[in-house]
Simulated assay, not measured.
Amino acid sequence: MPIPNNCAYKLNSAGEESSEESITFLFYSIKLYLNSKHMFPVRYQTAINEVFTLTEVHANEVDKFYAQVKGHFSIVWNLSDSSAFYIDNQLVCIKKNCVLFLTEANEIEHVKFSSLRIMTFNHAFFCTDDKQPDLGCQGLLFFGASNIPKISLTDKTLSFYEYNWNFLLQELEHQHTYKLPVLQSTLHLIVALSTRLFKIQNIEFISNNSEVDLIKDYHYLIEKNYKDITTVQDYAKMLHISPKTISNIFKKYDTKSPLEIIKERRQLQAVRMLKNSSKSIKEISNELSFSDIYTFSRFFKTHTGIAPSHYRRNLIEKQL
């Protein structure tokens, strides 16, 4: 699905970027290039696969963007006037100095941007502190709601982001004994401030902490168990709460019902497996715990409008 023009860029009558904006972007790119002393991406990895990476990407580096965010937690900071992304079938538009927070579970299909800064990291690097669940892998910025979490940086938080970006770059360039804890603590500081800003900018959503905790716990449990656990009742048991209470809370805060969230996550994985694996439809059906291939095919067609066999055939034909 293409990015709508009015979401990302002003276009002229011929459907091209205006010459004025192209010139502005050219000078902006030259300025970034001249000011940059780093060859991106800058990567840190330990012997036990704790991974942290910083990178900058520009308009002609879409493949580089995909390579960096795939399979990682990502903090995506927009440096240009506007950028747009299709993430899990949602169109997400962000303005300059807005920040997106993505997990390894997010599927990004199309992007349009001029310049981004990206921090990426894996579970082993980031998920180290269970004492503050709001700030970790199960926190508001990564499994807090159905919509993709984003914040708009204020003047103070922009300065904070700039300072810590440069600090992280310096740390990555030097070898010393305490590099890992310094990088981890700086990242957790960024996540902590971003979480506080997210709460301020989403005050209606955050007004009842116990209900918000339940929503993010529900999302997190689905992400870990969607292949095997498929009913709201089962997740309700895991959360020690009634299915009706869960439904009422989601109706109050979220745009999707608890059952829709389960189905959409399973459908998203089915699409990914049809696109990215050579597994048969029967194998995919079994892996997602459907009772038989016919039930899976009916489920897939209900949510996509096309049978899984036709979906895969269309993908193959497009590649020819």
Rank of each mutant, 00 (worst) to 15 (best):
L168K: 03
E171P: 02
L32A: 03
H72G: 05
G305Y: 06
Q319Y: 07
T120M: 01
N248R: 15
S80E: 03
N276E: 15
I190R: 05
T53M: 10
L135I: 09
D129C: 00
S19H: 08
Y235D: 05
T53S: 15
E264N: 13
C7A: 15
L172Q: 01
Q184H: 08
K131C: 05
T53G: 06
F290V: 09
L197N: 02
Y86C: 09
T103I: 06
I190W: 05
H219D: 03
M273K: 14
P181L: 01
S194T: 03
K31A: 08
V111K: 03
T230C: 09
W77I: 11
I23Q: 12
I3Y: 03
N225H: 15
N276G: 08
I151M: 08
E107L: 11
Y253H: 04
G139F: 00
T120Q: 02
P258E: 02
H72C: 13
I203F: 05
L274P: 08
I306A: 07
Q132G: 00
L197F: 02
N276V: 07
N12S: 09
E171I: 13
R265S: 13
T255Y: 06
A14C: 09
K275R: 15
Q132E: 00
Q233D: 15
K282L: 12
A14S: 12
F113D: 04
A47F: 06
T120A: 01
N35Q: 15
P133L: 02
S194F: 01
S297N: 12
L91E: 08
Y28D: 14
I3P: 01
F113L: 10
Y218W: 13
A145M: 10
L168D: 02
S29P: 03
S207F: 06
S152I: 06
K216H: 08
Q170F: 09
L214D: 00
V99W: 01
C98W: 04
I281T: 14
N286H: 10
P133G: 03
G305W: 07
S29D: 12
I87W: 04
L153I: 11
E211W: 00
E223V: 05
A14R: 09
L153R: 10
S242L: 11
Q269W: 03
L168V: 07
S247H: 04
E211A: 00
Y226K: 07
T53I: 15
S83M: 05
I48T: 13
S82Q: 01
V57I: 11
A145H: 04
K251T: 04
F205K: 14
Y220F: 14
F300K: 06
K199G: 05
M1C: 10
K64C: 05
I284E: 08
S74V: 09
T302Q: 14
I48N: 12
D234V: 10
H72N: 14
F290E: 07
A124C: 06
L320A: 02
T255N: 12
C137T: 01
F125C: 04
K199D: 07
E20W: 09
K279D: 11
Y163M: 11
Q45R: 13
A236L: 04
S159N: 13
S277V: 06
Y218T: 07
Y226N: 08
S159C: 11
V111Y: 04
A105V: 07
P2Q: 12
Y163T: 12
D130A: 11
P41I: 10
I206W: 00
Q90E: 11
H72M: 15
K227W: 07
E287M: 13
